[in-house]
């Protein structure tokens, strides 16, 4: 058991290092010069002033050092939680910009991922035993999963926002309210949260429901189910076993889907101009703010790694077979 987790942790650490390195490389070897862009934005006419500004920024961001030093400094700063200074919202530290956006992304993702997983599995399990339900769940489920995140977000925004006017279709809160822990703000934020949440929830829901339905049907036809039925065990017991065994691949599926879910959340944020990491990434690309871009990607990588690790632990807890495998056969 301990060796299993030690090995897993090592894999996660290596993934992290690789992700950080790639992350560091991409903006540096990307076309475009962010410092030049900033200098241009400042509209200084004298060449000397522009030059002074350029070297000031180069020095500030560390671009005047050799690459390997930049890389080491990058790690050093990273380990101190220093992600650099944002160019887009200069001179706010990237860490602060990201921390402001993070609650919105997490508040969108965690409930939509977990709820769609639970509700989807539940609907799938129900539809595996009710023909009528099955006939609706299957087509609707396929429709939902096949739908790109962007579409469903646009459709929802059009139907419930622009048309019905029930929900705001843009932003994370109204502009006339200051963010804080007041009831008014929380209610307002919730109101803005509904549509982006719903679009993420719906797309994922279909996939989980179909997966669960198929897995349960497979489990109900497996040998252990036949054996229990031959011994006259009630359907209740057989279904309970089938459900339990069918959930296991769904847990793995959750781990595999995380990347897709994150990408979906980012796109959805952009559609709804929701002030989370997705919108920040868009802004940082538009403004060539690669410190911000790096920081956002790192946050996402760390988040996905943590989530994966949690799923690993859950899987070990729910599937005895992985546990026995770890102990090396018999326990």
């Amino acid at each position: 058991m301990r060796r299993y987790f030690a090995r897993k942790l090592l894999i996660y650490a290596l993934t992290f290092v690789a992700a950080v390195t790639v992350n560091w490389m991409i903006p540096r070897f990307m076309p475009g010069d962010p410092v030049a862009a900033m200098v241009a934005r400042a509209r200084v006419s004298q060449p000397e002033a522009a030059e002074a500004m350029r070297s000031y920024y180069n020095n500030l961001f560390g671009f005047d050092e050799p690459l390997w030093q930049q890389y080491l400094h990058f790690w050093g700063a990273l380990l101190q939680g220093d992600f650099g200074i944002s160019i887009f919202v200069f001179p706010t530290p990237v860490g602060d910009v990201l921390l402001d956006a993070l609650p919105y992304t997490l508040g969108l993702m965690i409930p939509s991922v977990l709820l769609s997983w639970f509700v989807g599995n539940w609907i799938g399990a129900l539809s595996a035993r009710r023909k009528v339900l099955d006939n609706t769940v299957l087509p609707v489920g396929y429709l939902l999963t096949a739908m790109p995140y962007m579409w469903i977000a646009v459709i929802l925004a059009w139907a419930f926002g622009a048309n019905a006017g029930w929900f705001p279709i843009s932003g994370g809160y109204s502009l006339d309210i200051t963010p804080g822990w007041s009831t008014a703000f929380v209610l307002d934020a919730l109101h803005h949260w509904v549509l982006p949440f719903l679009s993420l929830f719906l797309v994922a829901l279909g996939g989980w429901a179909i997966g669960m339905r198929n897995m349960i049907i497979y489990e109900l036809e497996s040998d252990y189910s036949s054996y229990l039925a031959a011994l006259g065990a009630p359907q209740r017991l057989i279904r309970r076993y089938a459900f339990r065994n069918a959930v296991l691949p769904q847990v793995t599926g959750l781990a595999l889907q995380l990347g897709v879910l994150v990408a979906g959340a980012l796109v959805t944020e952009i559609v709804f101009a929701y002030p989370g990491l997705g919108s920040l990434i868009l802004a940082s690309i538009q403004n060539q703010d690669f410190f911000l871009l790096q920081g956002a990607f790192l946050f996402i990588v760390i988040g996905v790694l943590i989530a994966n690790f949690l799923i690993d632990i859950v899987y070990v807890v729910v599937d005895p077979r992985t546990r026995t495998g770890m102990a090396g056969g018999t326990s």
Binding site: Y227, R244, N245, L248, D319, P320, R321
Partner: peptide
């Protein structure tokens, strides 16, 4: 394969 793999 007659025994439920996830139950003791």
């Amino acid at each position: 394969s007659a025994l439920n793999p996830t139950r003791r």
